[in-house]
Amino acid sequence: MRSAYKFRLYPTEDQIKKLEETLETCRQLYNDALAAKKEAWEDDRYNLTYYEMARQLSANRKKNQALKAVYAHVLQDVLRRVDKAFQNFFRRVKNGETPGYPRFKGRGWYKSFTYPDAGTGYKIEGSKLILSGIGAIRIFKHREIEGKIKTCTIKRDSTGAWYAIFSV
């Protein structure tokens, strides 16, 4: 059974800047990947797969400093989100439901990013959450996490507060 634990983060001003830059880079990648999938479908009736987008991401990371600054697995998770949005769209079309085509994300509409691997991407040491590419952020861990941590999602809510959500 999967469950989630949500803890408040207390980043410094520099860490907030890095978190916001990461969020913006992920939003731009999401929109770029969505545009590429849409263009491939409209031009050639070809469904661009996650693996093809991931290969393009590898090439783009060598050229783009903003992509290079973000942990690679976080970027790969963004591509998985795009792929999942399209899979859900086609599933709803097939089942005769109201489809809802995947949407581009404007500023303020992309609120989280996910570290899919413990140990290398993130780790908890005492009252600090260490995120690759961002650093050690103070976390208020008000209870123990029971189970094996699968993912860590960093989320900014509407008030500007930051949270770490651990899926176990």
Results as ranks from 00 to 15, higher is better:
Pro102Met: 14
Phe86Cys: 10
Leu57Asp: 02
Lys62Ile: 08
Ser3Arg: 08
Trp109Lys: 15
Glu144Ala: 15
Asp117Tyr: 14
Lys105Gln: 08
Arg92Cys: 06
Phe140Ile: 13
Thr114Trp: 06
Lys68Trp: 01
Asp117Arg: 14
Ile154Ala: 01
Ala36Lys: 13
Ala136Tyr: 03
Val70Trp: 04
Ser127Phe: 05
Lys18Ser: 08
Asn47Asp: 06
Trp41Phe: 11
Thr22Ser: 13
Asp83Arg: 09
Tyr122Ile: 11
Glu146Ser: 07
Gln65Met: 10
Trp162Ile: 11
Tyr71His: 15
Gly108Lys: 09
Arg143Met: 06
Arg92Ser: 02
Pro99Met: 15
Ala36Trp: 07
Ile145Asn: 00
Ile145Pro: 00
Arg2Thr: 00
Val93Ile: 15
Asn88Arg: 15
Gln76Leu: 05
Arg2Gln: 00
Lys123Arg: 15
Gly106Asp: 06
Glu20Cys: 15
Phe113Gly: 01
Pro99Ser: 13
Arg103Ala: 09
Lys141Val: 06
Lys17Thr: 10
Leu19Asn: 05
Asp43Pro: 03
Ser132Met: 12
Ile137Phe: 05
Glu146Asp: 06
Arg61His: 05
Thr49Leu: 11
Glu24Thr: 07
Trp41Glu: 02
Thr114Asn: 04
Lys37Leu: 07
Lys94Gly: 04
Pro116Thr: 07
Gln87Asn: 14
Ile134Trp: 07
Phe86Ala: 12
Asn31Cys: 08
Phe140Trp: 11
Ala66Cys: 08
Gly108Gln: 06
Ser3Met: 08
Phe104His: 14
Ala59Asn: 04
Glu21Tyr: 05
Lys17Gly: 04
Glu144Thr: 10
Tyr101Thr: 10
Phe90Leu: 11
Lys38Ala: 12
Phe113Glu: 02
Lys84Ile: 09
Arg103Thr: 08
Glu39Phe: 11
Phe89Cys: 05
Ile134Gly: 04
Arg107Lys: 13
Gly96Asp: 05
Asn95Ser: 14
Glu52Ile: 10
Glu39Gly: 08
Pro11Ser: 11
Cys26Phe: 12
Glu146Cys: 08
Glu13Tyr: 12
Glu39Val: 11
Thr49His: 03
Thr151Trp: 00
Tyr51Met: 14
Leu29Lys: 12
Ser132Asp: 06
Ile137Pro: 01
Arg91Val: 14
Met1Trp: 07
Arg138Ile: 13
Leu75Ala: 10
Phe89Pro: 02
Lys155Cys: 13
Ile134Asn: 05
Arg61Gly: 03
Glu24Ser: 12
Pro116Asn: 05
Glu21Trp: 07
Leu57Ala: 03
Gly147Lys: 08
Trp162Asp: 02
Tyr5Met: 04
Ser132Lys: 15
Asp83Glu: 12
Ile137Gly: 06
Gly126Thr: 10
Val74Pro: 00
Gly108Ala: 09
Ile145Thr: 01
Arg81Pro: 01
Ser112Arg: 13
Glu144Asn: 13
Thr159Asn: 07
Glu13Ser: 15
Phe140Asp: 11
Leu48Cys: 01
Lys105Ile: 06
Thr12Pro: 03
Asp44Glu: 11
Asp157Pro: 01
Arg55Cys: 04
Ala59Gln: 05
Ala33Leu: 04
Ser3Val: 05
Ser3Ala: 10
Gly135Tyr: 07
Lys141Ile: 10
Arg156Asn: 06
Leu75Thr: 07
Ile134Met: 08
Asp32Phe: 07
Met1Ala: 14
Ala35Arg: 04
Arg8Thr: 09
Arg81Ile: 08
Ile154Val: 03
